[in-house]
Amino acid sequence: MQVNTMKCQHCEKPATFHITELTGNTPEELHLCEEHARMYLMQADQPEEPVPTIAGALAQHLKISQTAEELSSLDQESCPVCGITFYEFRHVGRLGCPHDYVHFEQELEPLIVNVHGSTAHVGKKPEQGSTDTDARTELIQLRKQMQDAIAKEDYEKASEMRDRINKINNE
């Protein structure tokens, strides 16, 4: 049996990735080296964004730095504001609310360093108050409680929530 003598379709390196593309009419076999496979997958995935596999990158990072138990308890950790679990974030690569950057600060840091090579913003700041907006996440919770109250037809509670939201908004 031959072992891995196939060359990459785009260069002289050995093809270590064998991809079957199913998007066309007939399945297409691609044989690529690691570098070209990465280029191919980045292009095929999402035409807009250059870093599509963030969840994958993160999962990879976690695999080397955490034990299985550590990872499974981390996965169950959830944000008190939006309820997203770390497991959900790892799988979809999207966060649930601005407070996740505070709640999962430590867990996100290695990933952010990996992507950006930095941990601090040095660019533009909002003109009106360049301070943290985390206090406003209270509004996310109040709005959720209001929507829940409406769903349960508890209109008294809903209007109480509405008043509190308006009060914060007018401060």
Binding site: V102, L108, L111, G123, P126, D134
Partner: peptide, 19 residues
């Protein structure tokens, strides 16, 4: 009010866009 973090800058749904 745009979501903004004193250290991380503008906050985005995907951490690849943060700052």
């Amino acid at each position: 009010n745009f979501a903004f973090h004193a250290r991380l800058g503008y906050l985005t749904a995907c951490p690849t866009n943060v700052g």
